[in-house]
Design a protein around this nucleic acid. Structure first.
Lengths: 198, 198
DNA sequence: CTAATTTCTGGCCGTGCGTACGAAAAACAG
DNA sequence: CTGTTTTTCGTACGCACGGCCAGAAATTAG
């Protein structure tokens, strides 16, 4: 059995380093230093920097999904699901701030050999599509008004990202209240008005 | 007189290179190559990479502001001003896509010597404050409902940034329609309902 | 214990970067 | 034209990075 523990230890140290010092300072040497090992160990357990951070992303992303999805599934209405999305992500953010910071940092900065962003558009696309489907279903059921589901999905995701980023730079910011504000904001934005309207 | 034209020429080439190849590939050597000059010329006209890209940012930012502000001032209501903000930025984006791409790229990636982002939070703060003031005024005049003006400001700015970023990666995207969707979205989010409500 | 395998070390290599510098060239003044 | 200043060129330096490897150390197997 290949020593799997080393890999996760290295990834954990990478999370710490990225969260504390930012992507630009997160060299393999620094990560190794943080882990108390030689630089070569990383090269031994990973084929390269890419594989290391790919594992980092998939691990954190998996944990977040694992936490958020049940909250979504507990809701029946689109408005309820959207509120659960904002609030559960805020809750996870409050408990695992460093993870979120590191994830954001890696997603926005990691590039592969030719210099193109590794997690660009293609990474958000699945989110967009699922949000779109949800919105469309709500529109057909009559719960929601008529609007461009793609623009709404992009904007919702942007609002979440902005919440995470703002919380990062403002440690005293009330994330829970922020999430509730977003929930109310978008509820008004998507819900059909009490009086009939297109 | 110091040759000012050289500076702007170099900045223009920097815009092109960043817009086409991304920040990671925008080395001084490549910019010099694009400009058809030697690398040392850049060092002669600028104290360093920082000053070059500071000039780039302030130039582009200035042009955008110059275009957008009159559209805002033409509006009297908060909802109108917000719509004008979305639409005028979209209009500028349509006409000067490369500039916008380069600006975004530089803002998100430029770091100073110690590795901290040069244009981070502090850059958005003035926007936030002006948006906040506008929202507060609207709330006091009764045009707008009660909500957290700071969260709304952060979210509006995020929606704009997301629009720019999405337009960048989806060349066929209808930016004008996107802006109008945002205008309607946030109008519903901030406006007081027809029937009285807190 | 010995031998084989896995894991680790520490340093070296090539690359690309921003910057500094001296010499060449051009522009300009007297 | 001559001397001076401004601008440009090409290069070389120092640095940090990711990747790589030969050998040492530790672990495991027999």
């Amino acid at each position: 059995m290949i020593e799997q523990a080393r890999r996760t230890q290295i990834v954990d140290c990478a999370v710490e380093v990225v969260a504390e010092l930012g992507w630009a300072q997160a060299s393999l040497a620094r990560i190794a230093e943080r882990a108390g090992i030689s630089k070569g160990v990383i090269s031994y357990h990973f084929t390269g920097k890419e594989e290391l951070f790919d594992l980092l992303v998939s691990q954190i992303y998996g944990r977040i999904t694992e936490f958020v999805v049940p909250h979504l599934d507990a809701q029946t209405t689109v408005v309820g699901r959207l509120r659960a999305r904002f609030c559960s992500i805020a809750e996870y953010l409050r408990a695992h701030r460093a993870e979120m910071v590191a994830l954001t940092e890696v997603l926005t900065n990691l590039r592969d050999a030719d210099g193109t962003p590794r997690y660009g558009d293609s990474f958000n696309e699945p989110y967009y599509q699922r949000l779109e489907e949800t919105f469309r279903a709500g529109q057909e059921s009559g719960e929601l008004r008529d609007f461009d589901a793609r623009v709404m999905a992009v904007t919702v995701q942007a609002a979440i990202d902005a919440m995470v980023a703002y919380a990062d730079t403002h440690p005293d910011h009330d994330i829970t209240a922020h999430a509730e504000q977003l929930a109310e904001l978008f509820e008004r934005a998507i819900a059909r008005r009490a009086e009939g309207e297109a």
